[in-house]
């Protein structure tokens, strides 16, 4: 998405005012949710744009993407700030608390995904002028599509409070991982056929990794959504086991942080 939007307006209050405090807690929570959806939209649009920049060798588009990230950073900082304000001033409980904690975690996942798209754009700039064979272009297209799709599903799960959708994300992410493997293989083979310089090969491998990590962030968002909806703890293998262990341990009071 290419548009110059200024950070003002759109429910972005720079600081809490009296009216904000009088605004109902849920109204504020809703505003935060809106901003998260908006931030995620910037990322889901930036991913295909990044792919186009890479495949078309579009230097202008690359610059645009890199600059657009500043808006995402501003929004992230502001949303985060408002989450902390809500936590501090309202001391929410149970599911409200989970919503805010989820929002905080999502903001950072989304912001980091945005950084990864910037990395893709920068990588595209570095290998400007390289032509890569069709199969490799196809794999890049597919990785771009899959990672954006994962991100969209994660946000759908968030908006719809659908933990089932969120729980499906790791399986979908396997597809992206498989594509990524094929892609790395293809880089080696293309290089072997002397159709790709080693320097470009390395950049392309890094770019593939960025797509894969965008997918990982989407999976993380899914975990946060499950936590928000059901209280289910993320990192089901390690953390959940650890948590279960802690629950069966003799109770000890932990200081709240």
């Amino acid at each position: 998405m290419t548009t110059a939007a200024d950070g003002e307006d759109m429910g972005m209050q720079p600081a809490m005012t009296d009216t904000d405090i009088r605004k109902s807690f849920h109204q504020q929570l809703d505003d935060i949710k809106h901003d998260i959806v908006r931030m995620a939209a910037i990322v889901t649009e930036a991913v295909p744009q990044g792919t186009a920049v890479l495949l078309d060798g579009d230097l202008h588009g690359a610059q645009e993407l890199i600059e657009a990230d500043d808006l995402l950073d501003t929004l992230a900082l502001d949303t985060e700030e408002r989450c902390y304000q809500l936590l501090a001033l309202q001391q929410p409980m149970a599911s409200d608390l989970r919503s805010i904690v989820t929002a905080l975690r999502m903001v950072s996942e989304i912001e980091r995904s945005g950084d990864l798209v910037v990395n893709i754009a920068k990588g595209a700039r570095r290998i400007y002028g390289t032509t890569f064979p069709p199969r490799m272009r196809g794999l890049i297209t597919q990785m771009g599509e899959e990672s954006a799709k994962l991100f969209r599903i994660a946000i759908d799960a968030y908006v719809e409070h659908d933990d089932g959708k969120a729980a499906a994300l790791p399986d979908l992410d396997d597809r992206l991982d498989a594509l990524h493997k094929d892609y790395i293989q293809e880089i080696f083979e293309t290089h072997g056929r002397e159709e790709l310089e080693i320097r470009a090969g390395v950049q392309l491998a890094l770019i593939g990794r960025y797509y894969e990590r965008i997918g990982d962030h989407a999976v993380n968002i899914g975990e946060r959504v499950r936590y928000m909806v059901t209280g289910w703890l993320p990192e089901h293998t390690g953390a959940a086991r650890e948590a279960a262990r802690r629950q069966t341990d003799p109770p000890h009071i932990e200081p709240a942080d």
Binding site: M1, A5, D9, M10, A40, A41, I42, E45, R152
Partner: peptide, 13 residues
């Protein structure tokens, strides 16, 4: 949501 959410931002502005 998604791309349309950015259109919404523009509309409101």
């Amino acid at each position: 949501r998604h791309g349309e959410a950015l259109v919404e931002v523009a509309i409101r502005e």
